[in-house]
Structures are given as structure tokens and as C-alpha cells.
């Protein structure tokens, strides 16, 4: 278990860094995909199948392909502009971000009380229970999202459709 976790986290770090650093946008999108799949792997390790599946389906299948479409249609894709990432004040920026990170993270860890031995009872994650939960307690939320999505879809079609000549 530990080995797979280490491999996946290494992939995540590589993916994240290369997404930012790469000049060629297409490679950046591919490394983003690597990042998403590594995160899905970690969800699988945590026995949360449904979330892992959702991660793959939504991020890798939809968001990734969407970004690829966007990248395809833009003009200068091979990133020949090559602007330099290193602005001169990068040292100070790094220091500032690290300090903010520790200022928020450490108190959170310190004050929250972890259960003494974590895996006391493994809650049986089953899709059926999730489905039931979704259908019973948060039905209004489901309806809202459904209407929102259809509106977004129709909006997208209206924008993309060629102008109808009356």
C-alpha cells in the first residue's frame, strides 16, 4: 500500500510542476491529465471507489477534453512566445507563500482531534447508499443542479450555433 501511495504522490508533484513550467500548452494539458489520474489513484487507495470514478469521468474525461478543445482552437498553440517564468522577485514570493501555508496548516492540525486509532470501523462505502442519500435528503439540490446544467447547455448551444439567416 505504502509503495503505491509514494508512486502516486510523486506523479502528482511531477504533474503539478510540469503543468506550470511547460512552455508548450499541449504538453501542459497532458501533464494536467497525469495529475488528475494520480489523484483518482489516491482516491482508489482510500477505498472511495465512487469518488475515484467521478474524478476520472469528470476531470479526465470532460474537463481535460474541454481544455484540449480550447487549446486546439487557439491560434499560437506551440507556445513559441516563451515568456520567462522567473520574475526577479521569486525568492520573496516563495518565502511569503511558505509562511502563509504554515500559519494556516499547523494550527488546523494541532487543534483538530484525530481519533486514537483511525481505522476503527471501516464505513462500507457503497454506491447504493450514496444513491439513496442523494435521492432522499438532498433532492432539491439535485433539481437545482439539473436546471442549472440544462440552462448552461442551451446557453452554450446558442453561442456556438452559426447565426441563423432570417
Amino acid at each position: 500500500m505504502i509503495i503505491t501511495f509514494c508512486i502516486l504522490s510523486v506523479f502528482i508533484i511531477i504533474g503539478a510542476v510540469s503543468t506550470i513550467r511547460l512552455h508548450n500548452i499541449v504538453y501542459a494539458v497532458f501533464s494536467l491529465m497525469l495529475l488528475f489520474s494520480a489523484i483518482a489513484g489516491i482516491f482508489l487507495l482510500l477505498m472511495a471507489e465512487f469518488v475515484a470514478v467521478a474524478q476520472i469521468l469528470i476531470y479526465l474525461g470532460a474537463v481535460g477534453v474541454l481544455i484540449l478543445f480550447a487549446v486546439m482552437l487557439t491560434h499560437s498553440v506551440t507556445g513559441s512566445s516563451g515568456k520567462n517564468i522567473y520574475s526577479n522577485g521569486w525568492g520573496w514570493g516563495l518565502l511569503l507563500s511558505l509562511s502563509i501555508l504554515f500559519a494556516t496548516l499547523l494550527p488546523a492540525i494541532y487543534f483538530s482531534d484525530f481519533p486514537s486509532d483511525p481505522a476503527v470501523e471501516i464505513i462500507e462505502p457503497s454506491v447504493k447508499k450514496l444513491g439513496m442519500e442523494m435521492m432522499h435528503s438532498c433532492v432539491p439540490a439535485m433539481w437545482l443542479i439539473a436546471i442549472l446544467l440544462t440552462a448552461a447547455l442551451i446557453g452554450g448551444i446558442v453561442i456556438a450555433a452559426p447565426p441563423q439567416k432570417r
Binding site: E49, F50, V53, I56, L57, L60, G61, A62, L68, P125
Partner: peptide
């Protein structure tokens, strides 16, 4: 035989379009 096998199958299926486009590009 995992619980959400079918959903996993369709999620995995959506990666094919990514690799086909990568080949084309």
C-alpha cells in the same frame, strides 16, 4: 468485482478520445 464497475468502465472509456487526439495532433 467492485461496486461501481459499470461507472468505472464508462469513465475509463472516455480516456480513449484523449489519446486519439494526441496521436492526431
Amino acid at each position: 468485482s467492485i461496486d461501481s464497475a459499470l461507472l468505472f468502465f464508462f469513465a475509463i472509456g472516455s480516456i480513449v478520445s484523449l489519446s486519439v487526439f494526441m496521436a492526431g495532433w
